[in-house]
Amino acid sequence: MENFQLSHQKPNKVSEYIAYKITQILKFMLNIFYGSKYAKRAVILETIAAVPGMVAGMFNHLKALRRMRDDQGWVRELLDEAENERMHLMIFLDIAKPTWIERTLVLLGQGVFLVVYSFLYLVSSKTAHRVVGYFEEEACKSYSEYLEKIDQGVVENTAAPSIAIDYYQLASNAKLRDVILRIREDEAAHRDRNHEFADSFESGVLPAHQQ
């Protein structure tokens, strides 16, 4: 985790500018509703983040069936990404404890994003993966800010939820900061992989599957 770095892949093509603009719009809307409420902001973030991997996994699964050829590990990796993001959501639900109104808004937001992202993936898989790459860049920034607030004492470094301790196999006395570090590391990995997936559509060479 000491090797973590914030990074940004500068858009160079029209499709990449579109992907980046979509990300900025989502970020703007998120800031309007939650701003510096980092835990509740993370609930929204992770609800949306859990969608792309499942959508991409489903479409790649169907494409592999149609073409009757091996998917080279893409489907499993994309579904693992979706599962990882879902676990992030479960962790933050324990931390933020959103009201039923907030849960309703989250479900509505997820429904809209599911439809939009599915359509985008059908139109341009490359752009869809680039969107996720940029989305994860912003997630890394958001969690870095979260860590700064914990270090500054603005956000209390409470005990880690038991679900996070079990999932990440942390020590029993682990703190919130330990959990955020692990989640940020996950997001950085998703960031890099989705940019690699997007690049593969241009090169025609699928990135090697990661275990």
Score class of each variant (00 low, 15 high):
Glu2Val: 06
Phe4Gly: 04
Leu6Met: 13
Gln9Ala: 09
Gln9Asp: 12
Asn12Gln: 15
Ser15Thr: 08
Ile18Asn: 08
Ala19Met: 05
Ile22Val: 10
Ile25Tyr: 11
Leu26His: 00
Asn31Val: 03
Ile32Asn: 05
Phe33Ala: 12
Ser36Pro: 01
Tyr38Leu: 03
Lys40Ser: 07
Val43Met: 07
Glu46Asn: 15
Thr47His: 08
Thr47Pro: 03
Ile48Tyr: 09
Val51His: 01
Pro52Ile: 13
Val55Arg: 00
Ala56His: 11
Lys63Asn: 06
Ala64Val: 00
Leu65Ser: 13
Arg66Ile: 14
Arg67Lys: 15
Arg69Ala: 11
Arg69Ser: 13
Asp70Lys: 07
Asp70Trp: 11
Trp74Gly: 00
Trp74Thr: 00
Trp74Ile: 00
Leu78Thr: 01
Leu78Lys: 02
Leu79Arg: 06
Asp80Gly: 00
Glu85Ile: 05
Arg86Tyr: 08
Met90Tyr: 14
Pro98Tyr: 09
Ile101Gly: 05
Ile101Trp: 14
Glu102Leu: 01
Glu102Cys: 03
Glu102Arg: 02
Gln110Trp: 10
Phe113Trp: 06
Phe113Cys: 06
Leu114Ala: 09
Val116Phe: 08
Ser125Gln: 15
Ser125Arg: 15
Val131Tyr: 15
Phe135Pro: 00
Glu136Cys: 04
Glu138Cys: 01
Lys141Val: 14
Tyr143Glu: 09
Glu145Lys: 11
Glu145Pro: 04
Glu145Cys: 10
Leu147Asp: 08
Leu147Glu: 13
Glu148Ser: 12
Lys149Asp: 15
Ile150Glu: 08
Asp151Leu: 06
Asp151Ile: 03
Gly153Glu: 03
Gly153Asp: 02
Gly153His: 04
Ala159Asn: 09
Ala164Ser: 12
Ala164Lys: 11
Asp166Leu: 10
Tyr167Cys: 04
Leu170Ser: 10
Ala174Glu: 08
Arg177Gln: 10
Ile180Ala: 07
Ile180Arg: 09
Arg182Gly: 00
Ile183Tyr: 03
Ile183Asp: 05
Arg184Gln: 12
Glu185Lys: 08
Ala188Thr: 07
His190Gln: 05
Asn194Glu: 02
His195Ile: 03
Glu196Arg: 11
Glu196Cys: 07
Ala198Arg: 09
Leu206Pro: 06
Ala208Glu: 12
His209Ala: 14
Gln210Leu: 15
